[in-house]
């Protein structure tokens, strides 16, 4: 579906949107905001490099990665830093596979195993596999508008529709213009704060504003934080479909 919209068309739509902001603003419902947010964070294909910096009780460590993605379901991450060089994580629809260079067998993560943390960070495998289609899992409610770090934002509360979602309640700050999620607070149904994600820096890819560096803090652990940084980003590169297959994992 994305293919059908040419770059020009996209630009036109955006321009129109920008012109119409004042009138649209009040017309936008919570669901529309979420829809827009999801749409703008999904690409046909991407290629990026970056790093994950994890701080826990034992200190700080950094891992570098390369990452490819396709649509909202497929992604492949390959680690390039020394400690985990060659390790890959492949996500295809509903499944997550781990590849280790010295193992002759792929390890499939499923069910509760997905709740384990990735590389000891505050990000779990499950956080990675989370469906991009927010409205399938959450009911959104527009709370108010607020300025966050100088950016006008919508503040929305998302309430989980089912128990199969990790975070029963999310509170997100969505940029009114770029629909970037500046901040997210993840809580239990009773409102106890579990994790906080905050975007520290952004970059532009075309017209879209994307997070360059974000910080994820596990609020239940003291001195625990993960810094995720995107060093380079390429939108819609040509990717061989076979990248996201199991055969390809074991090159």
């Amino acid at each position: 579906m994305y293919k059908k919209i040419s770059r020009l068309q996209k630009l036109m739509i955006l321009t129109i949107l920008l012109f119409c902001i004042p009138s649209i603003l009040f017309a936008l419902s919570a669901d529309e905001i979420i829809g827009e947010m999801d749409r703008l964070s999904t690409f046909e294909t991407t290629y990026s490099t970056g790093s994950i910096q994890t701080t826990d009780r034992f200190g700080t460590k950094t891992s570098q990665f390369k990452s490819w993605s396709q649509g909202e379901k497929d992604s492949l991450i390959e680690f390039t830093s020394k400690a985990e060089r060659g390790q890959k994580i492949l996500r295809t629809e509903g499944s997550l596979y781990l590849f280790y260079p010295d193992a002759e067998q792929l390890i499939r993560m499923q069910g509760a195993a997905l709740r384990q943390s990735m590389l000891g960070s505050d990000i779990s495998y499950e956080d990675m596999t989370e469906e991009k289609n927010t409205l399938d899992n959450y009911t959104a409610k527009l709370e108010r508008e607020e300025t966050f770090k100088g950016n006008a934002c919508f503040v929305l509360t998302l309430t989980a529709k089912s128990r199969s979602v990790a975070y029963p309640v999310q509170k997100i700050w969505v940029d009114k213009q770029s629909f970037l999620v500046w901040k997210a607070e993840y809580s239990t149904a009773q409102g106890r704060l579990l994790k906080v994600m905050e975007v520290l820096e952004t970059f532009k890819s075309g017209e879209r504003v994307l997070p360059k560096q974000s910080k994820i803090e596990d609020k239940m652990k003291k001195n625990s934080a993960t810094l995720m940084t995107i060093d380079s980003f390429e939108a819609n590169p040509h990717l061989d479909r076979s990248i996201f297959t199991l055969e390809n994992l074991t090159w």
């Binding site: 985990e84 390790q87 067998q105 590389l119 000891g120």
Partner: peptide, 11 residues
């Protein structure tokens, strides 16, 4: 789990 708090697998 490895010494760097990551994970690794060996056959």
């Amino acid at each position: 789990t490895t010494a760097t708090r990551g994970s690794n697998a060996f056959t």
